[in-house]
Every structure is written in structure tokens, then in C-alpha cells.
Write a protein that binds this DNA or RNA. Structure first.
Lengths: 215, 215
DNA sequence: AATGAAAGTGGACCAGAGTCCGTTTGACGT
DNA sequence: ACGTCAAACGGACTCTGGTCCACTTTCATT
């Protein structure tokens, strides 16, 4: 078994260059810090691939990286932070795709179509990374305040407005994103055994209903 | 401070007589077991009222009830189970209201109106019990498989069908329930500081869009 | 009332997340 | 090269959820 994100080229995400917000006015990391971050991400990624995100302990990651446990927490804050760091690279690709990629996902297509495509892309992205998302959501309430979620929300809200939707766009956005929640999708796919196509069709239907004209 | 569920009459929920499913073919509890369950619920309820659901440890509950820690887990399975038990009484009232209560929440009103009322009732119910719901959702994936959720889902699906909605009613149900998720509502109300009226209006809007005719 | 087995009990125990703090190290000015 | 010190380190420690199991209690039966 290899790295977790099944990508080949770049083995491990860097200190992160976010697609949208984040003004990192921080000075560069010290050499040992950078080295340990890399080691940790590599080790974590390998362990997650081997045992699944849910069965990897922080201690194990530290040991596999030949680093003290304290260092793991210093670098990533907490378990969820480490998991998010593992997602970072894939998430940036995903964000790039819907922000700047080719239509209909990226700019160029009518808003309603982009919205459809956005959901499908998200569902497929989740298909690969659900367990990582679930593991990165341990925090009960902060699930909704992450940068990644903010990017999604901004995007969906913009598309809704472009599509001429009137009403409380912000709340409609939350409703739509609710359907793309990792926990829900996981439940539908894993517990309820719904085929991916059906869940995707469900998204298209939902979007159609929300966007439909006659405000 | 008094009991957690701000009700007056019945101080503490009983072994539970579920409104909907659950075929409890179990024999009655032994006397000591029943006594300890009552003690535990009383203690838990008091501690939650004092410190908030998030700051109550299982050990503390056991101690406050003068009972061994093992007993707490034997009675309620885990932390989430205990929290659910605390919710039991209020949840049954809430279920009774939308299943059998007066219109427009209960039977009698047109389905679309009932659906609106259902959301409002749920949001108000959450208003009082969010922290308990959040605490009872620790389990990452099982959030969607609880009896209470199943009752809600069945109800919403039935109303959608009655309202003449065509399409994948099951998935639309999940989408609608997503808007009523404790975590989301908590975020909207607490972090984003949206007034309850706005969140309620958002529900009405969402329902209108989903139910709107011309399938 | 005695009895035996099923149900229940409680606290020692374990595992894993997260904190603390004394020690080490690397970047930088001299 | 060397001194300085903020940053980084690592592992012992704490805290809490959850398990285990030797012992006790209940209660149906006799």
C-alpha cells in the first residue's frame, strides 16, 4: 500500500497555500520544524492508508515519524487538524476545479449547471475521502466554521445569486450544503447502500427545485 | 438551578415508552436496576443543568448518583446514550405533537402546512435542547440511524407524498432534515448569530421550493 | 425460608487525546 | 567561531470514555 491520497506526483502537502482566504503573515518555519512536519504527514498518510483514518492514533503517527507526541500536537493542533492537513492537497485540487477549472464545473457555464456540477464534483470528492472528512470533523460544532466550508458556501451562494434566485440565499446555501455533508453522504452510501447515481440524481433534483424560476 | 428539561411535573423520564417503533419484548428491570437508573437520570439532569451537557463527565454523574461508573455504562451504553435518555421525555412530547397533536402541526391541515409547522416545531424544540442533542451525537456516523431520526424521516416523507411531491422523496427528506440538523442550527444561531425568525423563515422558503407544484 | 442462577454492581484498569515543562536546537547578530 | 534566545522538541502526565470481572443482590421456585 502507498500514500493515502492516491495521487502520485507530490508525495505530501506543503505548509499550505490556500486557494481562497488565509493571509499567512507568518515567518517561515525553522528547518527542524519543516522536516518534522513532512515526516509526520508522510507517516500519517501511510498509516491512514494502511489502517483507515479511524484507526490511527496520534501516538502511532508520532512513533512512525520518530518524533515526540508533543510535536504532533504542536504542528497540527489536534487530531482533526492532522486529518485536515492530509486532505489539504486534494482539497485544493477540488477547489481549483470548481473555481477556475473548465466548464461546466468552472466558469463559463450557466450558474444552474455549474451548481449541479459542483454537487456532483463534491460527491465524487467525498467518495474518495469520506473517512478523512469524518475523522476531521470530530469537533462537534466547528464542523461549520472551517475555511473549506466557507469556500464552498461562498461559491454556492454566488452561483445561486447568478442563477437569479431570490430569497435568503445564505440559508438556501446552508440547506444545499447540508445535502453534501460527509456524515450524511456516508450514511446514504454506506448504511443505506444507495448507489452513487441515485445520490447524484437527488442533488440535481434538489438544485432544480431550489433554483427553479418564479422565485 | 433545577432539573434540566425545564418541565415541572414528571421529574425524570421512565424506562421509555417510544411513540413509534421499538418492540420492547424485554422483561421488567430488577428493583435495584430501576432505582439506579432513576438516581442516575436525576443526577445527570441536575449536573447538565448546572454545567452544561458538554461539561459533565460520566464519572461525575456516577459519583453524584452514588453509583459505580460501570453501572452508568451498563444502564446507558455510553455517553451519547445517557444524553439521549435525558432527552427522551421531551422528545416524546415533541413527537406526539406532530404525530397526533392539533393542526396545523398534527393531522388535519394540508400536508404542506404541516411540513412548515413541523420544521418550526423542530427548530423551537432544538432551541431548548441543542446542547443535549450535540452531546448525544458524539458518534460520528450513527447520527443518522437513531430511532428519533427515523421517526422524523418517516413523517416528512409521508407529508411530502401527501403534498403530491414527485421524485425521490427519500432523498428530499434527507435534504430537508439536513436543514434541521442540531449542529447546523446551533452554528446558525450561536456562531452566525442569526435570529430564530430568520432561520424559521428559511425553512418555510425551503419547503415552498421543494413542495412547489409542477413536480 | 432456603436456594441457585441470572442480573446487577463497582471500582480497578486500559487506551487514546491533549497538556506541561525542562531540555535542545537552529537562526542570527557580532 | 561564538553567544543568545525564541522556537521547537519529546516524553511524562492528566483527564475521560469505556471495558472487565470478581463479587453481591434480586427473585422465581421449591
Amino acid at each position: 500500500m502507498s500514500q493515502y491520497p492516491p495521487a502520485q506526483g507530490t508525495p505530501v502537502p506543503e505548509p499550505s497555500v490556500r486557494v481562497l482566504p488565509v493571509v499567512d503573515g507568518a515567518q517561515p518555519e525553522r528547518a527542524d520544524a519543516a522536516r518534522n512536519r513532512a515526516r509526520l504527514l508522510e507517516a500519517a498518510s501511510r498509516l491512514v492508508a494502511e489502517h483507515g483514518a479511524g484507526h490511527v492514533t496520534m501516538e502511532a503517527v508520532a512513533a512512525a515519524a520518530s518524533v515526540g507526541k508533543g510535536t504532533v500536537f504542536r504542528r497540527f493542533g489536534d487530531r482533526a487538524g492532522l486529518m485536515r492537513a492530509l486532505l489539504d492537497h486534494a482539497e485544493q485540487e477540488y477547489q481549483k476545479a470548481f473555481l477556475f477549472g473548465p466548464a461546466p464545473l468552472g466558469p463559463g457555464a450557466p450558474a444552474a449547471e455549474r451548481l449541479e456540477a459542483f454537487g456532483i464534483a463534491t460527491l465524487r470528492h467525498l467518495e474518495t475521502y469520506v473517512d478523512l472528512y469524518l475523522a476531521s470533523e470530530r469537533c462537534p460544532t466547528r464542523r461549520y466554521s472551517f475555511p473549506a466550508r466557507a469556500v464552498q458556501a461562498t461559491h454556492v451562494a454566488a452561483l445561486l445569486r447568478q442563477a437569479g434566485v431570490t430569497g435568503d440565499v445564505e440559508l438556501l446555501t446552508q440547506a444545499l450544503l447540508g445535502y453534501l455533508d460527509a456524515g450524511l453522504v456516508n450514511h446514504l452510501r454506506t448504511v443505506r447502500r444507495l448507489p452513487a447515481e441515485r445520490v447524484e440524481a437527488g442533488w440535481k433534483d434538489l438544485v432544480a427545485r431550489v433554483v427553479r424560476e418564479g422565485h
